[in-house]
Design a protein around this nucleic acid. Structure first.
Lengths: 188, 188
DNA sequence: TCAAAATATGACGTATCATCCATATTATGA
DNA sequence: TCATAATATGGATGATACGTCATATTTTGA
């Protein structure tokens, strides 16, 4: 049932999907949906929160797999790629909620998702902070700024890939993305 | 009239704004709106395209103001900040259309806006390409990738700033962003 | 086997809106 | 000044869709 809703919301957007459509696709009746969810908004909300948590959990696990800061970042980029590629339809919704301005639901959802996203960003920032403390990284910016920057770049590439996967492949090698940060553009 | 629509769409989203509301705010009657625009979708479309063009024109001009590649990038970052700060409500819509998955309109608009965005991204990529040709920049990645990366980072910071302007100020100094690219994170 | 509980159904009440168009208002210019 | 053109208005209309609930179906267990 959630799967049907995800696919439809992802394809047409919250306001362009009717409960009738969802019921059809899920092979349930409308009434049954209302047994599981308070209303349409509740369905969407629980769907988004569940999926966002899945993403963040996977990313957090990837980071914690090793102690080496550079390897952590590599794992992060790789996992982000993998998880997103395996969940294309969810990614569209995830981006709509975390990156773009989501107008799907009047208010309230944004806060919850954004808060979780913010917490994860702090986890990411910690890698840069530690890397700077033990001199693996040069102090070229605030750790949180670097975390935002890295995540933004990954999202940028993922967005291109979403638009036209064959024309804009998400780099297989995480270093294509990381080198933008690791190697300076101008000579030191 | 466009101003009223922008504000409402930006605040509540396409589907949560009625023509009645727009008419009220614009101090016109509903019928008059239909004299100027074919329908609600037409209103939104012309509004978005016009604003996106304004943004891209301003950014293109900023880039063309100087011949120095580094200075071009500085102008880009600075102008992006300025234009966006002066048009907060529009930015939300612009992001929804170019960054997040826009579900406001069934189809067609995406293409037009995205295409313009893509064209601009090529302009930006040209700076990196030229900079590499004349050895101002090291060849740390494909020019187009670097353009996407820089734009994504700016967008990332702008998004934070949109969420809570006082807690996450968009860096006054463009080098805070550019140094992420200019200076390598790890020792060469 | 069958009655009672649990669950599923989908037609319907109600509300909202986009859009149209008959009418009213304003502008023009002779 | 007034007839005619141009423009503005907002109530009427029809379509869509959420959420309910009386009814139907299935499951349970005695």
């Amino acid at each position: 049932m959630l799967a049907a809703a995800i696919e439809l919301f992802s394809e047409k957007g919250y306001h362009n999907v009717s409960m009738y459509e969802i019921a059809q696709k899920a092979e349930f009746s409308i009434g049954t949906i209302y047994k599981f969810f308070k209303n349409k908004e509740g369905l969407y909300k629980s769907l988004i929160v569940e999926q966002a948590d899945r993403f963040h959990d996977a990313l957090t696990n990837a980071i914690e797999e090793t102690d080496d800061e550079i390897e952590k970042l590599r794992n992060y980029v790789k996992t982000k790629s993998k998880v997103f590629k395996d969940n294309v339809s969810v990614v569209r919704l995830y981006f709509a909620e975390t990156r773009g301005a989501s107008f799907n639901i009047k208010a309230g959802l944004d806060c919850e998702i954004r808060e979780r996203y913010g917490r994860f960003m702090h986890t990411l920032a910690l890698i840069f902070e530690n890397g700077m403390k033990n001199n693996r990284f040069r102090k070229i910016g605030r750790p949180y700024d670097l975390a935002v920057a890295l995540d933004s770049v990954c999202n940028g590439f993922l967005l291109l890939w979403l638009e036209s996967p064959e024309q804009n492949p998400y780099p297989e090698n995480p270093d294509v993305i990381l080198n933008i940060f690791f190697k300076g553009l101008v000579d030191p």
